[in-house]
Amino acid sequence: MAVDISDEDLLARYPGYAIDHDTRARYRGWLEHVMLFDRCATCATWHEPPGPICPTCWSTDIEPTPIAGTGTIHLAITLRQGPPVEGVDYSTPYPVVVVELDEQPDLRMSGTVVGADNSEIVIGRRVHLDWALRRGAPFPVFRLDDQHGADQPGASS
């Protein structure tokens, strides 16, 4: 799944993101709609954020590995203000959640939720991963499990 793109070009596709030697595989995955988390090839533990060594067993045999993209909302807020970004409407306001992934307890990722009213985006709801575009580059978003594909990705209604 390695996208043939230089590190320089990768940085240009994702301005503002903390991309370095340990995290670049994740963003190359985004370009192909694949969400990668670091997993230890020795002890099979998942880690976040991506890093050069397994915090559990200190193996350096780390494999960026696709996640299923399913989980449960663990933290949920809405932003009335924030950095100005194309397609982000803070007057709605803009929902941001931290999702506990099904792969492992306490393994989490943050993102927005699309295609749902903010009143429905609450802690405990089941979600799944989808993809949207920002400045022409794919990035991960979540959808509530019981609202399949009602909106186009990226629409924040």
Binding site: G16, H74, I77
Partner: peptide, 25 residues
């Protein structure tokens, strides 16, 4: 800090807000 203009980043101020949501929950 870590969130250079990424609305979905949960760092700093946003992180405390996020855990406030958990506290209420």
């Amino acid at each position: 800090g870590a969130s250079a203009g990424i609305p979905e980043s949960v760092f700093g101020s946003v992180g405390y807000t996020a855990w406030a949501s958990r506290y209420l929950y």
